[in-house]
Design a protein around this nucleic acid. Structure first.
Lengths: 194, 194
DNA sequence: TTAAAATTTGAACCTTGTTTAAAAAGTGAT
DNA sequence: ATCACTTTTTAAACAAGGTTCAAATTTTAA
């Protein structure tokens, strides 16, 4: 890889990080191309040298965050503990991540509307990859007779959906701190698969 | 109430219904004031005679849908069946509603960002009212020893969150039809509170 | 040093929400 | 039916923010 390509990649990443930062603060619509650029002392026009458009930029934010999340989950998949404990740890990790990366992690993607299928496909794949890790533990846990579930996909959707929803109501200064949330959610969600 | 006031109310409702219709098809950003107006053979400017701005209109869509949903739920609260069955029916109703009213029912409200707290308060109250109905069955079911839950709020959040998430992935032509979805979700979610 | 390539700029454009003055339509009293 | 008054609608203009593009600037490599 040439030096120039490396520089482009680095710049892209800076822009993505800037976008993530601002989006987590102001949401998708609140984060203007101008502000994202200003953060890096650029003008908004320059962003279009690196990204096709705002959608593209946001997608790549999504992808970066998802990629990191997948890596974080991976670890738990191979821990030498019961499947119940593995799933519990994955639940905790997911909750921590969903709260930390409020906007980006859980951005709402609507295939039909805003986004082109070109942009969408890799993201959906990454999402599947992420979700698949949950499927894996659940399946293995079933083989080991720790879990009993007939509709794997729905069970997983219930787990992820309920956790993602936390963003809708969680306030850092509310009744529960993150740790309590993680534990109670893990307790209750494990009841679903057991 | 004067005739003119009645006419205004009727027109407001027409606009709200038009907005709901278009939003459910194209999402929040996809529904332009122009298209909402065109549906009723008006120009977008006229909408501002009835609503302060787009936010206001959307909020009122939200409120209408929520009000109807609350009424539909209410019925199940008083059915002369076990609490488990009541909750099961409420779950089914919620899922049907969440799918039918995709965009509107579950519109994401972000207090800090786009919306003024004036507009937000009544919606949050309505939401609480809706959620409270779930709390009620769960509490009553606990008194009757049908359910065992210590963190009521979190249990309810898990129920509603997992159901609302269905919108993120549900396709009318997918593997599951609505009825199957309702039954499997009910089965699994009841495990949470039991 | 210089020509080509890469990057950035700033201005212009487009779409969409919002405002507003004026036009049109409706209403009620005479 | 007419006139004054109110309600409703329009069309045009504006503002904000995403997007494009030709030109200017900067970087790169020989």
């Amino acid at each position: 890889m040439k030096l120039s390509e490396k520089r482009v990649l680095k710049k892209k990443e800076q822009i993505i990080l800037s976008a993530i930062k601002i989006m987590n603060r102001k949401g998708y619509n609140g984060a203007t191309m101008e502000e994202i650029a200003a953060e890096l002392l650029m003008t908004k026009g320059a962003l279009y040298y690196y990204f096709k458009n705002k959608e593209d930029l946001i997608f790549q934010c999504h992808e970066l965050v998802l990629t990191n999340a997948i890596e974080e989950l991976q670890v738990h998949l191979e821990e030498p503990v019961s499947y119940e404990t593995r799933l519990r740890n994955m639940i905790k990790t997911h909750i921590a991540y969903a709260i930390k990366e409020k906007e980006t992690f859980n951005m709402i993607l609507k295939p039909d509307e805003t986004f082109s299928s070109e942009q969408l496909k890799p993201i959906l794949l990454k999402r599947q990859e992420y979700a698949h890790q949950f499927d894996t533990v659940i399946k293995e846990g079933m083989k080991a007779n720790e879990f009993t579930i007939t509709e794997l996909k729905i069970a997983r959707m219930i787990l992820l959906g309920s956790m993602n929803w936390i963003q809708q109501w969680y306030q850092p200064d509310g009744k529960f701190n993150v740790e309590e949330l993680q534990n109670v959610y893990a307790d209750y969600l494990l009841k679903v698969v057991k």
